[in-house]
């Protein structure tokens, strides 16, 4: 089964996402900021990444660009709150494959992950 990297500084959001994904049979790795995400991505080459945008240390947009520089085939979906349309657009221009708007329904999370891994 595919491995998903969940990146979010909020422990609750990481837990929720992880729960949704692991219940559907995915292997889940967690990271709590952009820098952490880059390390974890290098270490375990996940099949897909769910990346929060607003985070301390390194934000999601920067992390997206860094990871895409390491692995141009990286499949990353941004996880956004409302009011960040311009950032999401920039993320899509920078190679994000999809986005989820928080709070995301489990169905939407799984649909997005399925598409990412396809």
């Amino acid at each position: 089964m595919a491995t998903i990297l969940v990146v979010d500084d909020a422990a609750f959001m990481r837990m929720r996402m992880s729960k949704i994904l692991s219940e559907a049979g995915y292997e889940v790795i967690q990271a709590e900021n952009g820098l952490d995400a880059i390390d974890k991505y290098r270490a375990s080459k996940p099949d897909a990444v769910l990346m929060d945008i607003t985070m301390p240390e390194m934000d999601g947009l920067t992390a997206l660009k860094e990871i895409r520089a390491i692995d141009p085939a990286a499949r990353i979906a941004m996880v956004t709150a409302l009011g960040q349309q311009q950032i999401v657009l920039e993320a899509v221009k920078s190679g994000a494959k999809d986005f989820l708007v928080k709070p995301a329904e489990p169905d939407r999370v799984l649909a997005a992950v399925t598409k990412l891994c396809a």
Binding site: T80, L82, Q85, V88, V92, D98, F99, V101
Partner: peptide
Amino acid sequence: CQLPSIRCYQLLQ
């Protein structure tokens, strides 16, 4: 969909 404009951009891509 909550950000349809971005979907349009993705379609364009």
